[in-house]
Design a protein around this nucleic acid. Structure first.
Ligand SMILES: NC(=O)c1ccc[n+]([C@@H]2O[C@H](COP(=O)([O-])OP(=O)(O)OC[C@H]3O[C@@H](n4cnc5c(N)ncnc54)[C@H](O)[C@@H]3O)[C@@H](O)[C@H]2O)c1
Ligand SMILES: NC(=O)c1ccc[n+]([C@@H]2O[C@H](COP(=O)([O-])OP(=O)(O)OC[C@H]3O[C@@H](n4cnc5c(N)ncnc54)[C@H](O)[C@@H]3O)[C@@H](O)[C@H]2O)c1
Lengths: 218, 218
DNA sequence: AGCTATCTGTGACTGCGTTCACAATGTGAA
DNA sequence: TTCACATTGTGAACGCAGTCACAGATAGCT
């Protein structure tokens, strides 16, 4: 029984489901490494801090089936998620802004997610360019359009100061980028059809500070 | 769909509203610096990439009123948001894990958000402790409970490897921390009444990779 | 002072993500 | 082979964040 395959469901997958699939895959890779070959929805749910029904709905959304009393086949499920999340191809991502955060990101993802690879980085500081950092070549920002077009890069992480973020996004959109990982604490204006995922640590820190003051359990 | 998750329902302010208020404040501080004294809901909405009705609802939620035809008083609104988000006091935050990401965070927030301050950092690597980094003292992890209790710290950022995150959270909870900024790509199990805001760059990158493959749009 | 344009405040509504609840399933045991 | 029952698959119900639409308000204009 083959589970999971490409199908015309992509546009029906919500952004929330995509996010949880990413989490499920990470958890499943550990489960698989530990030797388990089957897993129940309630087990995955516990690991993901979600409900069993949520897990089953998500797997239903990608057309993956389990079997009653045996649960889901771990390795097949990993393969199915791989097929959905990145079409089983390696996605090239550009990084703009090789500062403290940009360097941490290059270091972290260098060998960690095989399906995603930072293939080019850009900065406007002459001291930071024209070298290779964690396997990623750093170019001057002026060459961004050229490299992105040449390599057909469609995803980019923005790690420049907030004041430069919108301008940077505008350039990248024109060069062909249609999916952004935005670390700047501002919201980007992009054309319809362009995806932006905001990783706003500033807002997150403010939220954490707020809830630190809430009286326990009221 | 909510970015953070709280075990009980505590305030009438939703976590989404708290997040947007943080964004509004950041935008308003720029508006104020530029000299404007009043602002309309549709102007704030444009800057925040939201709708005017959304902005008005959020301000209504904190009991802030504007005036027809004049809009909202910028500085009063900033003060109102300050009062709500952190009770007008400086919130002390602990950092656990002074690696690449932890150091970037200490550097970034050192002088940027006056209402939040990293007052103590912890690491288990002896080479990284017993020094001051960007104004934050770094202690060995064994002293975490002692320092957190002594200083009454209730918020913490977790920037240790994923395999250490749950164990770290458990320790911090016992020491009195009830609000977490979690950078590890796992979901934390915490007691009811404890807040966790996940900043999951791994999931975010997977989402960005997914949408980079979507054929032109949505 | 009265009029008007336009913004705010908010009850009602909508859409959608999540959860519920249970019928369908098929496995493993006897 | 038969049976028992834990688990899956999913239509329906639910809850709530977000949006609509308009009544109410007020500053500026004549
Ligand atoms: N470091 C953190 O922990 C942290 C936390 C919250 C938010 N952020 C956000 O992430 C972004 C990066 O933060 P950081 O700490 O790495 O900043 P940083 O100042 O260390 O690095 C910014 C880098 O961007 C480069 N740059 C500036 N303008 C550019 C342009 N127009 N084109 C190309 N490169 C340009 C600079 O040369 C520098 O190398 C900022 O938007 C910041 O608000 C960072
Ligand atoms: N760096 C990034 O850009 C990035 C991206 C995505 C996710 N993350 C996550 O953020 C976290 C930190 O990432 P990083 O790149 O800074 O890792 P890192 O390896 O550079 O730093 C981890 C630090 O934690 C310390 N540590 C380990 N176990 C500890 C413990 N039990 N108690 C106290 N300290 C301990 C280590 O000594 C080290 O200094 C990880 O969970 C990682 O998955 C980081």
């Amino acid at each position: 029984m083959v589970h999971g395959h490409l199908k015309p469901v992509s546009s029906r997958l919500t952004v929330q489901t995509i996010g949880r699939l990413s989490l499920y895959r990470r958890l499943l890779l550990e489960v698989s490494a530990s030797g388990a070959r089957q897993i129940y929805s309630h087990q995955l749910a516990t690991a993901a801090v979600a409900t069993p029904a949520q897990v089953r709905r998500d797997l239903m959304a990608i057309g993956f089936s389990g079997s009653p009393r045996r649960g889901y086949a771990v390795d097949d499920l990993i393969a199915a998620i791989n097929a959905v999340l990145a079409r089983n191809v390696e996605t090239s991502v550009a990084l703009v802004g090789v500062g403290n955060l940009g360097r941490a990101i290059l270091a972290y993802f260098a060998n960690r997610e095989p399906w995603v690879r930072f293939t080019a980085a850009f900065d406007r500081d002459p001291d930071k360019v024209n070298r290779i950092l964690h396997g990623c070549r750093v170019y001057p920002i002026d060459r961004a359009e050229e490299i992105i077009r040449r390599d057909g890069i469609r995803a980019a992480a923005i790690a420049v100061p907030a004041s430069e973020a919108q301008h940077t996004a505008d350039r990248l959109v024109l060069a062909g980028v249609r999916s952004f990982l935005n670390f700047a604490p501002v919201r980007l204006h992009v054309p319809t059809g362009t995806f932006v995922d905001d990783v706003d640590m500033t807002t997150a820190l403010d939220r954490v500070a707020f809830y630190a003051h809430q009286p326990q359990g009221s």
